[in-house]
Every structure is written in structure tokens, then in C-alpha cells.
Amino acid sequence: MRLPCPICGTRDRREFYYQGAASMLERPVSGELDAWHAYVHVRDNPAGRTRDLWHHEAGCGAWVIVERDTVTHEVFGAVLVEDADAD
């Protein structure tokens, strides 16, 4: 698998570290326990399109949101977390 790093271009998967679902960027604004429980522990396991966080560890060092399909392995694109998340 190759991933399109917005900075480096298309690179081999070995250069990337997989973090997990991009829902991690959507922090609950309230202190409500259920919201935080879902944020920390509950994940979808989609057969199809998914958005994940990857770290271009052996490349530029940027965090990237990659959209891909878990069934076909098609990679649709990637954006920098920096551009998508104000934090």
C-alpha cells in the first residue's frame, strides 16, 4: 500500500505509523461522561470508507488524515491534520 502524503508525495506504507480512527480529532466540547466514553473507547469498524490518522514517521513527520476503503484497499486521498484541525 502506498499513501499520498500532502508534503512528500506518494510514499510506501513502511514510512508511516498507523494511529487509528480520525474521530480522535473530534474531542467532545462538553464534560459529559457518555460523550467522553464514546470518544475514548467506541470505534466503528466499517467495511468500506474510513478516515484514519497516520504519522509520516520516516518522512516529513506530519500527521495525516487518510481516507481509504477497507474492502477494496483503494486510497482516496490525504490531508494534513494541521489543515483540518485547529489544535
Binding site: C8, R11, R14, E15, E57, A58, G59, C60, G61
Partner: peptide
């Protein structure tokens, strides 16, 4: 000039 891996070394 790129950053990449050589074996497992950055």
C-alpha cells in the same frame, strides 16, 4: 532531497 527509511533507520 527526501526523508525516508534505509532498512529500519530513518
Amino acid at each position: 532531497a527526501i526523508r525516508t527509511q534505509l532498512g529500519h533507520m530513518n
